[in-house]
Simulated assay, not measured.
Amino acid sequence: MMAAVLAGAAMLQQVEEHSFSLVLVIHRLPLWFLVFSLFLPRIALVVAWFQGVLIPFHPHGLIPLIIAILLPRALVLWLIYLDQGVSLWFLIHLVVAVLVWSGGGHQMKRRVSH
């Protein structure tokens, strides 16, 4: 009886800690691709294709090629999601994509007063 009480008390004392951390996880996509594709996604995709980095993701066919030409950031986001899920790298690329797609990459036009 006393052993059961002590075992129950020991179980109550165990506190399970859950922590959330944003770690820069790298699985199959190399670090150079993750950084380089932030600035020049089309060139990063071409270089990764020539080096064989994209082979584990099986981007064969016409649809990945069309997406790589028209929306390279969407393809990079898809590759990161396949490799790491929703990670810090995915969130960084998502923020950059939203900024670029919302017009953050365009220069502001100044009004010239006459």
Results as ranks from 00 to 15, higher is better:
44 A>M: 07
9 A>G: 13
17 E>G: 06
41 P>A: 02
43 I>S: 15
19 S>P: 00
30 P>Q: 00
46 V>R: 09
7 A>P: 00
30 P>L: 00
9 A>N: 10
6 L>Q: 11
31 L>A: 10
8 G>W: 09
34 L>D: 08
25 V>Q: 12
29 L>Q: 06
11 M>C: 07
41 P>C: 00
28 R>I: 01
46 V>L: 08
31 L>G: 02
44 A>Y: 03
38 L>H: 02
15 V>Q: 14
14 Q>H: 11
16 E>R: 15
22 L>K: 08
2 M>A: 11
5 V>N: 07
18 H>L: 13
39 F>P: 00
24 L>A: 14
26 I>H: 05
20 F>K: 09
18 H>C: 15
21 S>V: 01
23 V>I: 11
44 A>I: 08
20 F>Y: 13
28 R>S: 07
35 V>W: 00
35 V>N: 08
10 A>R: 10
41 P>E: 09
40 L>W: 02
34 L>G: 10
10 A>K: 12
29 L>G: 00
43 I>L: 10
34 L>C: 05
24 L>H: 11
19 S>F: 04
28 R>T: 08
39 F>A: 13
28 R>F: 01
22 L>N: 12
25 V>E: 11
28 R>Y: 02
23 V>C: 02
36 F>I: 01
46 V>T: 04
39 F>C: 10
17 E>N: 07
29 L>A: 05
39 F>M: 06
24 L>V: 04
3 A>D: 06
2 M>C: 05
44 A>L: 07
40 L>D: 06
8 G>P: 03
36 F>D: 07
6 L>H: 11
34 L>S: 11
29 L>C: 04
21 S>M: 04
15 V>R: 12
28 R>W: 05
41 P>M: 03
13 Q>Y: 04
8 G>L: 13
40 L>R: 06
36 F>L: 06
19 S>Y: 08
19 S>I: 07
35 V>L: 09
1 M>K: 08
17 E>V: 15
11 M>H: 14
4 A>F: 12
15 V>W: 06
43 I>V: 13
34 L>T: 06
30 P>Y: 01
4 A>P: 01
11 M>E: 09
21 S>G: 03
17 E>Y: 07
13 Q>G: 14
37 S>M: 03
45 L>P: 05
32 W>A: 06
43 I>D: 06
26 I>L: 09
32 W>R: 08
38 L>C: 15
4 A>G: 15
